[in-house]
Design a protein around this nucleic acid. Structure first.
Lengths: 144, 144
DNA sequence: TTACATGTAACTATCATAGTTACAACTAGA
DNA sequence: TCTAGTTGTAACTATGATAGTTACATGTAA
């Protein structure tokens, strides 16, 4: 199991729009950097747009940021690209046997623990902004 | 995306072996409570055995705990049933364009953040033992 | 009107999951 | 020793998500 790379691609897109802010970030341009198909990029950009993170218009070339990057956390991107449903990072087997004490209580016993773990993950993602990622990229770029 | 229910089934199995400790926990018995196929249970028990959590022998009916339940955390079970590879909860798109500053640095910039988030998740699972889950089941059972 | 971009649908290939069946290997007891 | 019952595993199927591809309708601006 692995969380979809839509998430990392989403971050890549936002970072590149910022770094290319003096140019025009078309889906083809972005696809060239991510190394995938422009249609894939457009699908993800559509999700970012739906979450209010970018601005795009049909017929007009280029995507722009809709917010300051310091106000976009990785958690925002994660939610935007819909890689994990709320409270559903862990799946629980359904229809356990209600005639067994464990079967009839296991879900209620486990779900809160799973939710806490998911929350811990998401909180961690919320501590990092896309701006932090961009700064890191710039730093690495200047060093090498 | 969702983490395999092997995890919740693994917890279910351990809890039921404990609660049924005066009886014999065959794969068929366990399958009846989980509500699945005995072969599925045997496969998962094999993983739990590989991690040193249970004792089972070919030809001999019943699985037993190999450790005190208070010494088995949910993180131990999670590792045992192999639902998430180390450092690979998040997948990162590969082959980004090395001719682009973002393309050539995005992986190095993102991976540590992803690893930290995964660690936060796993730490949270490490705070709960299977015994805690069993206690919760017993408590719920007595109340209702 | 033309050239070019976005938005989206339809389709494919690939992979993991979960379940199913079948059977070899093994144990204990009659 | 034979038999019944159990574990361990392999092979197969169905399902669903992912990621990519192609194609085209829609929209904009020069």
């Amino acid at each position: 199991m692995s969380i979809s790379s839509r998430f990392s691609v989403g971050i890549h897109i936002l970072a590149l729009i910022e770094i290319n802010k003096n140019g025009t970030s078309t889906s083809e341009f972005l696809a060239g950097s991510v190394n995938t198909n422009p249609a894939v990029i457009r699908k993800i950009i559509g999700m970012l747009k739906g979450a209010g993170l970018v601005k795009v218009q049909p017929g007009i070339a280029g995507a722009e940021l809709a917010k300051n990057l310091s106000d976009i956390t990785l958690f925002d991107v994660y939610k935007a690209v819909n890689v994990v449903q709320e409270k559903e990072l862990f799946s629980v087997h359904d229809n356990p046997n209600p005639d067994c004490p464990v079967g009839r209580n296991i879900q209620a016993a486990i779900v809160p623990v799973f939710e806490a773990a998911q929350k811990a993950l998401e909180k961690s993602l919320g501590n990092v902004s896309v701006e932090n990622v961009v700064d890191d990229i710039i730093k690495k770029e200047n060093i090498s």
